[in-house]
Computed example of a mutant assay.
Amino acid sequence: MKVLILGGTGVISRCIVEQLLAQGHHPVLFNRGTKKELFQDDVEWITGDKNDKDAFQSLMQPHRFDVVIDMISFNASDAGLTVQTFKERASQLIFCSSTAAYKRPFRTIPAQEDAEALVDDPVFPYAYHKAEMERYLHTVIAKGEIPVTIIRPSLTFGIGGANMGVLRQNVNLVHRIKSGKPLVMFGDGTVPWSFTFAPDTASAFAGAAGNERTYGQSYHATNEDLHVWEDLYLEIGKLVGREPQLVHMSSQLLHEANPGLFAHLYYEKQYSGLFDNSKIKRDIPTFRNGITLAEGLDMMLRWFEREGHPVEAEKDRLEDRLVEMYHRFGNELKALF
């Protein structure tokens, strides 16, 4: 199959490309062409910017694809452009949404796709716009304009990603644990979560491509190993040989202090992150979700070492200040009694 990936070089999408190649398909990548070193000559590129609507549609006009996988639509308008551009030029559209689009708290635990409602409050813009995108796509499905499949990843870690940790600071976690510096954990660290890694998530997209059972369906694609948030840091500590020191802070206070940095904690991650994968396993037998937390974090740490990532000094200083404030408040609280 000839499969267009809109994006193609992100954390999940680069793994999709690798899996499509391994399955003998012909992937075509559309993006700005700044990371061509990631793949060899067996990948075709179309260079452009989807934000330039007219230029994008002009670029795509001569092409036809068996499947289009859209990893870069974040709202209904983005998805609408993809639908209008490819409804006569592709046999299937696969969209990357997010489990963040589910309204919290869940109605079911582990969450089941067809039992959950979508976010309808714009207070958390990322989640709201993904939900609006899905609502639009359901109208496309209802009208029968083109076969559409929706995949909802949860928090996914992988090579190239900088989204690990409460402050989303990746390599800083390793630096602080090795240095014996405390790290901030939201709440008491015991929110249940299933941490997922990009090669597993990518198998959902690769397995949905050309799969008629997935037409008109929505799936989440997550790990099922039961962990709590604190385990993420504790497992890194095991891998580097030093137990992390954690200080626990309210997600509400963190969000009130900096909504941009901490909205993902307050609106999403303070709630259960457990998902039932029965539906995707039924319809996509090649979906896999077996990378354990230890295996996935070992992969990430090897990448950090290989690439020589520097510490993010600004976030390191911020974490120092948060830890200092935590201890100061603790001392003041003790003084009341």
Rank of each mutant, 00 (worst) to 15 (best):
D283R: 07
E132A: 14
L167H: 06
A100D: 12
K35W: 04
P285W: 08
W303R: 03
E312S: 04
E324K: 10
Q245V: 13
E116V: 12
G207K: 07
D121T: 03
T286N: 03
E319A: 05
P122W: 08
E268F: 08
R135H: 03
Y233E: 04
M249L: 15
D52Y: 04
D54W: 03
V140Y: 00
T222Q: 08
T34H: 13
P62E: 10
G144V: 10
K279P: 02
Y126L: 05
T214Y: 01
L261V: 09
M71G: 01
Y128E: 00
G144A: 10
V323P: 08
K87N: 14
S250P: 08
N331A: 15
I12D: 00
M185E: 12
K36H: 03
E332D: 12
D298A: 15
A131F: 07
P182Y: 06
G260R: 10
N289H: 10
F275P: 08
Y271F: 15
S203P: 01
A117K: 13
M249A: 07
I94A: 11
L265R: 07
T47E: 15
E212Y: 08
T82I: 05
F95V: 05
I94C: 12
H264V: 15
N258A: 13
P310M: 04
L137V: 09
H175G: 05
I141C: 10
L254Y: 05
R152N: 14
A79D: 05
R302A: 15
N277P: 01
Q112F: 11
H227I: 06
G189M: 11
T47L: 11
L173G: 01
E268L: 14
H309W: 14
I236G: 02
F30C: 04
E116I: 11
F304T: 07
V184L: 13
F30V: 10
W45A: 09
F205C: 02
E324P: 00
E132S: 14
R152M: 13
P153V: 11
T47P: 01
L38A: 10
V166A: 11
S194E: 09
L81Y: 03
E116H: 13
E116D: 12
P259F: 05
V3E: 11
F304R: 06
S194P: 00
I5L: 14
K143P: 08
F30H: 02
E37P: 04
K315R: 14
L274P: 00
S91I: 01
P147H: 11
I69F: 03
A209R: 05
S278A: 15
K50S: 11
K178W: 04
K269E: 14
V43T: 08
L93S: 11
G207W: 01
H138I: 06
T190V: 12
E243I: 11
L274G: 01
L4T: 05
M71F: 09
A127R: 06
E134V: 02
F262N: 00
I236E: 07
S77Q: 14
Q19V: 01
A294E: 10
S272Q: 06
V43Q: 09
T108W: 03
K87P: 09
N170I: 05
D298T: 15
K181A: 04
